[in-house]
């Protein structure tokens, strides 16, 4: 049995009277691809912020990469990678400048940054673009690169917040192959998405509604439980019961 890399119990986050996240409990195992689904406003972003050490829970307990979410937010940040659709890389810096910047932020030495950058660019067959401004790359390429940069410091967990929004179907799949590969090498992937076919690629999926986790299992088990042919249907039947907007 693999160890838990994320383990949270009864985690809550209130904003005044509003329970953004309402007693969520779950574990994520090392090397797992964990899909974190939910409708807009279900509380996903708030939950991710707590797991990344960006905000402290109102109550509950848990650890991420071995550090306490209630007390050690700063330490968590050093052991995770984060990438979102809204912000991934600086458009006005070149590919290599971005790598040096983020490598530096996570305390890698010049040598390490250089070696890993070359390795990544070779793997992406992207070496010719090393001095290209990120802003002039197609979105799909940018996102693939952002994923590599988020993993540059070899974090134990990578959080991906809607990484593939708007990306073409071919590149989207290349992106998921990178996720598969990272996972097979032991990196834990925690991912949100609006593409329901991508939910099927995950080892396990949780579905959040109104701040609570309403379902959590492997895609196959969920489909069995809900007597559905695709995760899409499971998601809809749960999310339709949502009472709150955003």
């Amino acid at each position: 049995m693999k160890e838990n890399i994320i383990s949270v119990k009864e985690l809550c986050k209130n904003f005044g009277k509003f329970k953004a996240v309402d007693r969520i409990t779950f574990d994520v195992k090392r090397g797992e691809i964990f899909g974190f689904l939910g409708a807009n406003g279900a509380g996903k972003t708030t939950a991710i912020r707590m797991l990344c050490g960006l905000s402290y829970p109102t109550s509950g307990s848990g650890t991420v990469a071995g550090f306490d979410v209630m007390r050690n937010g700063e330490k968590i940040k050093h052991h995770i990678g984060y990438m979102s659709q809204r912000f991934s890389l600086y458009d006005d810096l070149t590919v290599y400048e971005n790598m040096k910047l983020f490598g530096g932020i996570y305390g890698l030495s010049k040598m390490q940054v250089e070696r890993r950058s070359v390795e990544i660019l070779n793997q992406l067959q992207f070496k010719s673009e090393i001095n290209t401004l990120v802003g002039s790359l197609p979105l799909g390429w940018k996102q693939k690169l952002a994923f590599c940069v988020a993993s540059l410091h070899r974090p134990e967990i990578v959080f991906l917040d809607e990484p593939t929004g708007g990306v073409d179907p071919v590149t989207r799949r290349q992106f998921w192959e990178m996720i598969y590969k990272a996972s097979s090498e032991g990196t834990t992937i925690f991912v949100t998405t609006h593409y329901m076919d991508e939910a099927e690629y995950c080892n396990r999926v949780s579905i959040m509604v109104d701040g609570q986790i309403k379902a959590l299992d492997s895609p196959a088990e969920l489909k069995k439980q809900f007597n559905a042919s695709a995760i899409d249907e499971v998601f809809r039947s749960l999310a339709r019961g949502a009472k709150r907007g955003e």
Partner: peptide
């Protein structure tokens, strides 16, 4: 082991393309 299946299938001669597609 879907990732393993993906890489293994691609090595087959008569396979033109293989890519993840939902489940």
């Amino acid at each position: 082991n879907m990732y393993g299946i993906l890489t293994a299938t691609r090595q087959e001669k008569e396979v033109v393309d293989c890519y993840p597609f939902g489940a």
